[in-house]
Design a binder for these strands. Structure first.
Lengths: 123, 123
DNA sequence: CTCTGTCCTGGCCACCCGGGCAGTTTCGCA
DNA sequence: TGCGAAACTGCCCGGGTGGCCAGGACAGAG
């Protein structure tokens, strides 16, 4: 019939449990017609698995931190965030610092990416 | 050795596109060690795919820009990106500038957020 | 009442970032 | 064959960022 030109289906993995991720990667890597996506590559579908136990659910962020985080995700600078929230730039930097710490991020860009990945914020 | 105590991995499908769902079901149904979950059955992982209509075409980014963008999304600094790609910091800044322009972003955080929103990259 | 946590503010400083300038090579396409 | 796009590199500079120090106000828990 037509096993002719169907392109490979790109699959990405989002698995919390490393062991499960390994097994799935091994299993899926050998399936003809499938290919695992490289980091950053856009996949046609994603395999997700959330370990119900290992769910910190939402990380413990204070309300103010969530405010700052939301504005950060909009690309706002500390100065803009300060004006928006009616607080000083120093305070914004303070909250940003806490955010970097809690989200285990190295910078604001990383923080937003991490937050989005963990569902703390919606892009 | 021990194929003994590895139970089958239960996979459920959440695919908007019926055609893609069909192909994936066919592909995954024949993989030893995997089993597709019956409706209502609790799966270890879920294969999800967004509606393909909801992708407003990729913005015209060059390959190098995509490289830089992917690393930016990982929270890498210009210096780290330069080392990673084997180019100079100045060149990285050049590409970042193009990215900010094309993505209509005010900074690297905004660029990553926009790119993720438009599906250019996967977080 | 003390202690803890959250929120807020200030200053200082090294570094990073973004944008401007100008220049090279390489490659594909008309 | 010439021309433009892409990729790459350099320097300069103002402003932003992140990390550190210090402090105070205020609410709730023990």
């Amino acid at each position: 019939m037509s096993e002719d030109k169907l392109p490979e289906i790109l699959l990405s993995l989002e698995i919390d449990d490393p062991a499960l991720a390994d097994r799935l990667a091994a299993l899926l890597g050998n399936v003809a017609g499938l290919r695992l996506a490289a980091p950053g590559e856009r996949a046609a579908a994603t395999v997700v698995a959330r370990d119900p136990r290992a769910r910190p659910e939402d990380i413990a962020l204070t309300q103010r931190e969530l405010d700052v985080l939301a504005l950060m995700a909009e690309g706002a600078s500390n100065k803009m965030i300060a004006r928006q929230l009616g607080i000083s730039v120093h305070t914004v930097k303070f909250h940003v610092g806490s955010l970097l710490d809690k989200l285990d991020a190295t910078g604001r860009t990383d923080a937003v990416a991490h937050a989005a990945r963990r569902g703390v914020i919606e892009l």
